[in-house]
């Protein structure tokens, strides 16, 4: 990207003021978390990440920082590698047969792919919420929240308090407090997704990855989850993949635009969210955020 093209884009963006830009301008500013960066660590950094599925090169050379206590949205059309990228960030990528990656992902400066790393500890620190709500159907609501403790064999002295705290933070407590012993599957889709968020919170992750967490939900549930994301970003680093640009504009501090143009997916541009939606540097970003394709 040359300065010349940047200026061109700037002019175009000014010429077509988008409503998204005004939404993004009102979004939360980074660095407003109350706990300070010490409790949050120094965040997550991806360094020249590539990903393959067998011979298919799905993602090329993505370097992206996720400063502690910020929300970063990954946007882009389907098949651009954003989901693949988010899955390399907590080593879920490697579950797909034939999957490979290159580059480094640093959590607090330490490579999570370093040989000898206990991958279960990495995933405890970097939690994940999936596109489709996936509570454990054999467990009650309460058991679902605490399932991470059981799965990772962690001890917690006061499970009831933890359960309540996580459900409150996920914005679900008031709806389920009287039926914690009901099965997770008895909740609506939006409630199930918030249950999954509560479950991810119970193991106290530093980073929370969300892969299109609202794509299967109605607008009301989406709103609740967005509120939850804003509250959570006070205490953790959040990366969210979304197809919904309004959502990216509403919840994120930074936005990264991904695109696969025939070849592997690449990150085209990253900047503060308000800038991406008002003055994108790259023409392709502007085309995407203004709805010209994708």
């Amino acid at each position: 990207m040359s300065f010349q093209s940047k200026n061109e884009n700037k002019e175009k963006a000014m010429a077509t003021p988008s409503s998204l830009a005004s939404v993004a301008a009102n979004a939360r500013k980074p660095g407003t978390n109350t706990l300070g960066t010490n409790a949050l660590g120094i965040g997550l950094e991806a360094r020249s990440v590539h990903a393959w599925f067998g011979k298919h090169h799905a993602l090329a050379n993505v370097s992206l920082d996720f400063p502690a206590g910020t929300v970063t949205a990954l946007i882009g059309p389907s098949g651009c590698g954003k989901s693949t990228f988010i899955r390399t960030l907590n080593r879920m990528h490697e579950f797909i047969p034939g999957a490979a990656m290159a580059g480094e992902v640093l959590l607090d400066g330490k490579d999570i792919y370093e040989p000898g790393t206990d991958v279960t500890k990495i995933r405890l620190k970097i939690g994940m919420v999936f596109q489709k709500p996936n509570p454990f159907p054999s467990m009650t609501i309460g058991e679902n929240v605490l399932s991470g403790l059981k799965l990772a064999q962690l001890k917690n002295a006061n499970k009831d308090d933890l359960m309540e705290e996580c459900l409150v933070r996920a914005g679900l407590w008031n709806e389920v407090k009287d039926r914690l012993n009901a099965h997770g599957g008895s909740l609506s889709g939006g409630q199930q997704q918030r249950l999954c968020i509560a479950r991810a919170l119970a193991v106290n992750p530093q980073v929370l990855l969300m892969d299109e967490p609202c794509s299967a939900l109605d607008p009301g549930s989406t709103l609740r989850i967005e509120e939850t994301i804003k509250e959570l970003s006070e205490t953790m680093t959040i990366v969210i993949v979304t197809h919904n640009m309004q959502q990216a504009a509403r919840v994120s501090d930074f936005t990264a635009f991904f695109l696969a143009d025939g070849g592997p997916g690449e990150m085209i541009e990253t900047a503060a969210t308000s800038q991406i939606f008002s003055q994108p540097r790259d023409q392709r970003t502007e085309n995407y955020v203004t709805g010209r394709f994708g």
């Binding site: 907590n90 879920m92 579950f95 279960t120 500890k121 990495i122 995933r123 405890l124 939690g127 994940m128 999936f130 489709k132 996936n134 509570p135 454990f136 159907p137 054999s138 399932s147 991470g148 059981k150 799965l151 990772a152 064999q153 999954c196 479950r199 991810a200 193991v203």
Partner: peptide
């Protein structure tokens, strides 16, 4: 065994044995 449940368990920091015990065996 539904893949999304297995992935959910792994994403919570479960070891393989714990995934089998908590997700696969009940299913």
């Amino acid at each position: 065994t539904p893949l999304d449940r297995i992935q959910a368990a792994y994403a919570l920091g479960a070891t393989r044995w714990n995934v089998i015990r908590t997700v696969a065996l009940p299913y």
